[in-house]
Amino acid sequence: MRRLSILLLVVVSLLFARNLLALSGNAILKKVEDTMNAPRDRIVTERMVLIKAGGSEKERTIRFYQKGNRKRMVVFLSPADVKGVSFLSLSRERMYLYLPAFRKVRRIASHIKGEDFMGTDFSYEDMAETEYTKDYTATLIKEDDSQYVLELKPRSKADVSYSKKIIWVDKKTFVSTRGEYYSRTGELIKVIRAENIRQVDGYWFPMKMTMRTVIKNHQTILEVMEIKHDVGLADNFFSERNLKRQAR
């Protein structure tokens, strides 16, 4: 009887210890965020393909700059009718758009966050977002040998466009490989897939991302053409001064 009690205690302790060692949903989400924001800065030149339900395609080239959790800049390099259009995000409430035809930087308010970014399937919020843990709480809903599945719900005062996100996280790299984004009415509206995850300069990054808008069956593919890390972008690189300069 005494041996049985000890055995029971050992089993319970092991189970308890396993639970202690297991990562919580929020801890996994923090690791995803840390992976995404690991480099001091990043410059990515990407080929962007917009594909309609019927299969016709439009192609763009963009350059994406990021530093830390918040600072983001996107510059359209082609085609001619959008060349030079640039977007700067300094925080959720401080965003600017440069339209070269008017030679003017215009502040844009956060009501635009849920809108398609320049006709793509990515919204302004999708392009700017990397502070998952600030906006969402995560629950681990599933786990297998290779991945975690998290359900993200907005925090009470978070100003986000989605009512729920489900993301699949690769256990080895802590890169999100798939995501489902739900509207405020609970409908699945977008699905994102990340493929060809590679380690570049010591940082994990998906070389291809596809965002599909479910109702329209329209998708936007982003393929990395060139990527650089830790090039030393200063804080003031993300400024009105540079927004115009990068766009020219």
Partner: peptide, 11 residues
């Protein structure tokens, strides 16, 4: 001036 009040752009 330009800014926002409760997500509404104001200038």
């Amino acid at each position: 001036f330009a800014g926002e009040i409760r997500s509404v752009g104001v200038w």
